[in-house]
Design a protein around this nucleic acid. Sequence first.
DNA 1: CGTTTTCCTTACCGGAGGGTAAGATATTAG
DNA 2: CTAATATCTTACCCTCCGGTAAGGAAAACG
Lengths: 227, 227
Amino acid sequence: MPKSGKVPEPYQKAFADRRRDPDGKREAILRTAVELFHNRGYANTSMNEIAEKLHITKPALYHYFRNKEDILLECYRWGCMLIREFLDEIATQGGTGMEKVESFIRSYIQLISSDFGRAVIRLDDSELSAAGRSEVRSYKREIDRRLRVFVREGIDDGSIAECDPKLTAFAIAGAINWLSMWYRPGGALSPEEIASGFVQTFANGLRKTGVPAAVQVMPAAGRVQRR
Amino acid sequence: MPKSGKVPEPYQKAFADRRRDPDGKREAILRTAVELFHNRGYANTSMNEIAEKLHITKPALYHYFRNKEDILLECYRWGCMLIREFLDEIATQGGTGMEKVESFIRSYIQLISSDFGRAVIRLDDSELSAAGRSEVRSYKREIDRRLRVFVREGIDDGSIAECDPKLTAFAIAGAINWLSMWYRPGGALSPEEIASGFVQTFANGLRKTGVPAAVQVMPAAGRVQRR
DNA sequence: CGTTTTCCTTACCGGAGGGTAAGATATTAG
DNA sequence: CTAATATCTTACCCTCCGGTAAGGAAAACG
């Protein structure tokens, strides 16, 4: 379980001691930066602000990162690692496509609790250089591609109704991505509550079953879903 | 430099003639600004860029708007007007809650084709002053509130399955809001195609019907839902 | 035709931001 | 203990940005 409640953020004190700990200090910079990027936006966050929050001066930051974009990209890469981890897990866990999509929704929403996860989602590549942008886009494409694969698997194994995997993946990922815009840890809804609601919505749909739909979009009555 | 204009962007030429047309010129500024805000972000768009694209100089902009934030807020208000219009229309059209939600999805996605509509959605209030922020937030709350009302109506009239209207509205609005991040007019998918796909997904859900789910999705750690 | 009003330009200001140079101080290796 | 190295600071540069001052020229008004 990640940190919850009023934990004093220890990384703010990483520079209290001058003893050498490059990795710990790098991480402290990243955690501070990603938090500021969330609150004020990347463009509106200055290197000075990041430094002040760590009680150091701006040039010290350049001891650990080449420039501002480098900091942002490292936040991004960290978050991508988290995503790749749970994607691999889901892919190897077995089960139907529907079950994998459900796992995806839960894990992806869980990711929202992580600052670095949110950073990946919120990162607007228009802020980046050409090189950074192409890197970011390739990772985002990869995530999207893997979600589509889960949907396609579900269609093939009969657990998911016929649909356009591209659009379906957009709808699912979009709904969760947008969470990152307003979700803040410690809010009224826990990630688990949100996840359960979203799974319910996406799995079963809004329409009340038993009431015949005015226009049936589905081709034919399907076969049994595997379990 | 005169761009080889195949696409007629008439508002780029609004300042070619010095004859007085304050409204037309104001609109030209807004259309230019909102396009730049989309492509580069608000913070990364300078007043100079806006002016240059209109072949005028920066101070001329201050003849029509008080400051940069004023431009952004006017874009926002314009888009809000569009939203309120279709919300009113849906509210008075009658029909079940499910039908209203479906209309909302279609209209809201249609809005994405409008630059001003996208501006409303993408506007990050952290870029604004306290006054602007509170205005923006109040409008956004209003939109969210009205969507929830449609959902609740559907639950009450039996067209929508039991659910948490708050979470359901978040899922629907989120999926569409996220469209504004990647949708560009003239892309592979038309707004109508996207809308149909989303309606299908949200109305019927992913799960293949014909056989009831073995275990009805229960909120794992969820709170008891109202009603 | 002359006056007033609107519109837009050139020139400029104060400030902040990303980033660098050069040096001071502490830590560590030898 | 000494020298080397890592770490961090003070001082600074250049650019760009939002915004303003002041005035010139075109349009509208009478």
